[in-house]
Every structure is written in structure tokens, then in C-alpha cells.
Design a protein around this nucleic acid. Sequence first.
DNA 1: CTACTATAGTTCGTGACACGTACTAAATCA
DNA 2: TGATTTAGTACGTGTCACGAACTATAGTAG
Lengths: 161, 161
Amino acid sequence: MTQAPSGSAASDHGRRLSTVDGLAQLSFLIQRTLERRVAEHDLSLIQTRLLGVLRDRQPTMNALARLLDLDKSSVTGLVDRAERRGLVVRVPSTQDRRSFTVSLTPEGRSLVTEAAAGFEADVAAMLDVLPLADRDALSALISQVLVTHAAQHGVDLFATD
Amino acid sequence: MTQAPSGSAASDHGRRLSTVDGLAQLSFLIQRTLERRVAEHDLSLIQTRLLGVLRDRQPTMNALARLLDLDKSSVTGLVDRAERRGLVVRVPSTQDRRSFTVSLTPEGRSLVTEAAAGFEADVAAMLDVLPLADRDALSALISQVLVTHAAQHGVDLFATD
DNA sequence: CTACTATAGTTCGTGACACGTACTAAATCA
DNA sequence: TGATTTAGTACGTGTCACGAACTATAGTAG
């Protein structure tokens, strides 16, 4: 299963992977697809995650660290590099003089929007092999897994702080 | 969609993600799950991929670079560090005096086996929310996507060199 | 067979990235 | 008010990925 990225299973058309193997392989495939797509815009995966998070919120550095599950000092570096590229700005917080909120610049926003569109097209192409009904079924199953996992882990889905 | 890791959608039970969003979120969740699990064994994702590839083959360094889609010099570093930890060994090739094959040590093999078992349990737990029939359906759909993608990209699934 | 070209793997330099520690200024608590 | 906690940064360190340069080896062409 952790050999998944190298294509070690599914040797026959119609041959079925174990569910865990399949999920692992699919996740590596999706990640790789995303990685390649965003690399065209000189973005790494973590930078992409940063820009993605900032699409609909302006968190403090501290909140960013929590959202991205990174150490504070790592976020400093990440935001520094994005700021250097003109993709984000730090705005002094109105609530705490020690604190900054982080926002996308128009350039950052258009960059992530463009990359996202490309990635969506990539994945949609991958799913073209499935009939519409199967795509819907896949979507429903995945949503169920994700929703349950989020609920079990107390994820606050709309935190903006 | 690239904000997926932060849990930006699926605000209601029963609410459905778009397929692309769901896939992206699921892939990040699986990756994160794997990353955490292997970190318990002081392994990074890329080291895990290396050990995973070596479970059933002994490639040359060059072949490793191709399998892992990395630059030659990156593979040198990766194998150096794994060798330093006693997880792999370089064996002079019998076919080319410039070349080495790379093999797992018993320690490396047991480490990756243990990590894999943990990860499988993690994912299986995640899928417990689905009835058995739905798990089978998910597995079938994923397999179809993967098999088709592999076929379209000329993946040689069992290369050993 | 010889000269030329290509290649395996390594070294080196560089930048990105993640962590932990230490620090200062600001905020909070007792 | 003094003590404690916290936001964010600087710094050191290790991992990781890339590209350029290099040497010894292999392959090719004449």
C-alpha cells in the first residue's frame, strides 16, 4: 500500500485493489496531479494550501498555524515567502497589537483560482471513465467518509479567526 | 478545493461536496493520516515511499529515481539517509560497475511492514462508517479510476530494474 | 581498435520547508 | 501591580529537491 505511487498493483483490467490500497493509491495520484498543476505556477503544495485557506478567511498567524497544522515559526517562513512574491499581505490586527491577519492580494487570488481551475479539469478528466451515476455514487460515498471524519474530530469548518 | 485540508466545506450532515472537492479533501486526509502514522516510526512520506518501493524490488539508483520521480541527486541523499539508519543497503551491480542496486535490510522491512499495518487500520477505521456494500462499491469505483489512469499513462506495474 | 559520446552515481551549492529554542513586546491573570 | 502567558520572529538544524559539475564506466561509430 505504501508502494502505491509506483504502481505496484492492479495488473489487470477489471482486477480489484483492496479498498485501503486503492484509497492510498488514489490519494497519491491526486496529490501528484495537484503538485504538478500548481508547480506550473511555481507553487508548492504547502503554498497552495496557504493560498487556498486564505481564499475565504483572513486568519492571524497563530490561527494559520492551527489551520495548516504547522509550527508557528514554519508559518512565519511560509508567509514571508508568499509575501515576498506579492501573493499575500500581513495586516496589523485591530484586536491585538502583537498580531497580524494575513490576506490574499489580488495577484495571489487570481493565481490560486487559476491553479484550482486547472486541477479541477485534471480530476474531472480522470473521472470521465465513470458513468455519471457512478461519479455521483463516488461523490456521495466520499462525502460520507469525510463528513463523519470531520464530525468525529471536532473540526470547526468555518473558523475565520 | 485547495482549501480542502482546512475543512472548508461539508457544513451539514448529508450535505454533499462536489466530486472534485471531495476527492481533493479525501486525498489530503489520507496523506495526513499516513504522514502521522509513519512519523511515529520517524519516517517521512518520501522515506516511506522509498521503503515501500523496495518491498518487492531491488532497483538501481537510476531506476529508483524514475520510480520515485526524483532527480538522481535527490535519490542519492534519500538512500544515504536510509542507509545511515540501517534501513537499506547499496549492493554493487553485477551488470554495470558504475551501478548499485538498493535493498531493504530486515530492519527496514519490518519497519515498513509495521507502519503499513498501522496505516491500514487507520483507513479501515475511517471506512467503518460505510456499510459493507458501500465499501465494496467505493473500492470498485476507485479501482476503475486507477486502472484506467495507469493504462492511459503506460505505467509498467512490475518493473524491477 | 580508437576516439567520441553517453551514462551511473556522487558532490556541491542553493532554496524551500519543518521543527524547536530563545527572545521581546504585548496581553492576560491573580 | 507583579507574575504569567502569548504573538510573532530570529536562529540553528536537519530533510528534501533541483541543477551543475565531475569521474569512472559503458556504449557507439568509424
